[in-house]
């Protein structure tokens, strides 16, 4: 499979900003991966994401150089109508992306905007509701939903457009840990069932490290590390880039000197305990 997302030498400066929000950025993401994008606040993550779904440069002006391609076609040269169908964007606050008064109308929002005929729309809305297992919420009003449910409704609205690439911008920041891990499990299932590529911005790495194929770390608008989660988190300098290394990984790193312990990938607590069973520490 080819690369669904290609970023080449991308630099962007907002028109009223003193310096580049993203500079000289390169990235290639193969189709079907779960990619985690991490880095401190203000490192340019949000800007980068907005160049992928076209809000930059189609909505925000500024100095743009380099190229971003989704599924082979340039974002700059596409219109928002096409981009909305190839890239889904789940924003941080689900409240501000639910527009209609019932869940099913909201899931249909994007399809209505595209002028999809009613019968096809009905089928795609039902499919999206089914994927997220929220069919029973179809007639609810937004203010009758919990935060976790709102998140799912917003994601259903995104998936109804059948995007190949879905961006999740800090999807768990408002959720409690259990609801957050349910969301992560959902992402894994959707990738398996639909083959969708996910780019996830997340501060809570402990949630995602077990399922991510790739971890990209940004700082000051630049990419400072990229690789498998294990390679990046075992790297010497990652802690200095404002990325919190999960506790288990820190212990795994401590024990990594022992031969055979966690040399290939990141381990969960029980895997790590099993790996050192019978050894001297």
């Amino acid at each position: 499979m080819g690369d669904i997302l290609e970023v080449e030498g991308l630099s962007f400066k907002y028109s009223d900003a003193p310096r580049n929000a993203v500079s000289g950025f390169n990235l290639a993401i193969p189709e079907g991966e779960i990619v985690v994008l991490a880095g401190p606040s203000g490192c340019g993550k949000s800007t980068l994401l907005r160049t992928v779904n076209g809000l930059i440069p189609h909505m925000y002006g500024g100095e743009y150089s380099g190229d971003v391609r989704v599924g082979g076609s340039s974002v700059k040269g596409s219109n928002m109508r096409d981009l909305a169908q190839s890239v889904g964007f789940l924003f941080q606050n689900p409240e501000n992306q639910i527009f209609m008064f019932t869940v099913e109308r909201d899931v249909a929002f994007g399809l209505e905007n595209l002028g999809v005929p009613r019968n096809e729309m009905r089928a795609r809305v039902d499919e999206a509701l089914g994927l997220l297992r929220i069919g029973d919420l179809a007639q609810r009003a937004p203010h009758e939903l919990s935060d976790g449910q709102k998140q799912r409704v917003a994601l259903a609205g995104v998936l109804a457009m059948r995007p190949k690439l879905v961006i999740l911008d800090e999807p768990t920041s408002l959720l409690d840990p259990r609801t957050a891990s349910e969301l992560v499990a959902l992402v894994v299932r959707l990738r398996k069932e639909l083959g969708t590529t996910f780019v996830v911005v997340e501060h809570r790495l402990d949630l995602l490290m077990g399922v991510a194929d790739r971890l990209v770390v940004m700082e000051g608008g630049k990419k400072v590390a990229e690789g498998t989660p294990k390679d990046v988190l075992f790297g010497e300098e990652v802690g200095t880039h404002g990325v919190a290394v999960p506790a288990v990984t820190r212990v795994q790193k401590m024990l990594a000197g022992e031969e055979g312990v966690g040399v290939e990938r990141l381990l969960t607590p029980s895997e790590l305990a099993a790996a050192v069973e019978g050894r001297e520490i």
Partner: peptide, 19 residues
Amino acid sequence: LAEAMESRAYGAVPRPTTL
């Protein structure tokens, strides 16, 4: 809201359909 609307093709066709 404006960002989310753009991302879901608001205004893509002059006569949107309805569910």
